[in-house]
Amino acid sequence: MKEGTVAHDRPTGLMARMALALERPRVLGTLMLAPAVLYVVAFVAVPFFIAIALSVSDATVGNPQIDTFVGLDNFISVISQDAFGIALRNSLLITTLTVLILLVLATTAVELLAREFRGKRLVQVLFMIPWAMPVALSAITWLWLLDSQYSPIDWVLVQLGLLGPDGPFGPSRNMFYLGREWLAIGSVVFVDVWRTLPLATIIVLAGRLSIPRERIEQAQLDGAGFFRVLFRIIIPALAPVLTVAILFTALLVIGEMSTIALLTRGGPGHATQILPYWAYLKGINSGDLAQGAAIALFLFPVLLAAAIVALRFAYRAGRD
């Protein structure tokens, strides 16, 4: 060692060496990302690839081994089923309608919740209840509200003279919400909107509160009215967040089967059938695990494309 230079002793203890390693960005970054990556691999990637393998096999619930390759037989067989076409249509239709209604309601709700008023805290709590409620409990509540004989909604309509022998929706005293195709689909959309509105609203609210107040005040000073501020300033500024909200709620609704399972079980006929529930009926209840996997995978290309487009849009909008 030359004279006058400072000597740095290399750390010798385990803890000291670890501390030194953690100072390197690459090591620290890898460690910080590891839990998320492990989670995605264990709970998303592995099940996804197992599903693909199952869909080209002849696995059953009694013998879930993936040892026989059957090519695309399961996909071809699924397409020929009456229920499949209806389930595909309903999955897309129910999701689209739910998301469109959510967009309008969530934006409206955010405008309300972004303002100060008396009882705001209470409104916020009440607003969150559908999201905090277990799905089964909320669906059973709706099952009662939409009951074919004892629906309180029907009772109100009868009292208002809208339902019954002389009412415009009569002569029956019941609407049979879940027993008529379009009323049943409408009911499912309504319940899905009711359940997911709090989530969509919270996502959008976060974006709304990040818009600088000065921008809105400036526009108002310049004479812009409520709708001009909403459509020219707030909604464009919210675009990335709205995209995320659409993506989240769409994925949530399209992959969810408990509302259908508890309300209609796919009926009347197959009129409200959706792909996740049909996959469950075929794959688990009927025992054909391979065909169930094939049904479940049908939406994957659509969802992947939608997710890529939505995320790219959100990224660009955020960068702009």
Binding site: S148, L178, G179, R180, A184, G267, P268
Partner: peptide
């Protein structure tokens, strides 16, 4: 009959 039977579950 009425359309209620399309929406029945096992207990209905």
């Amino acid at each position: 009959m009425t359309p209620e039977v399309f929406a029945w579950n096992a207990a209905s």
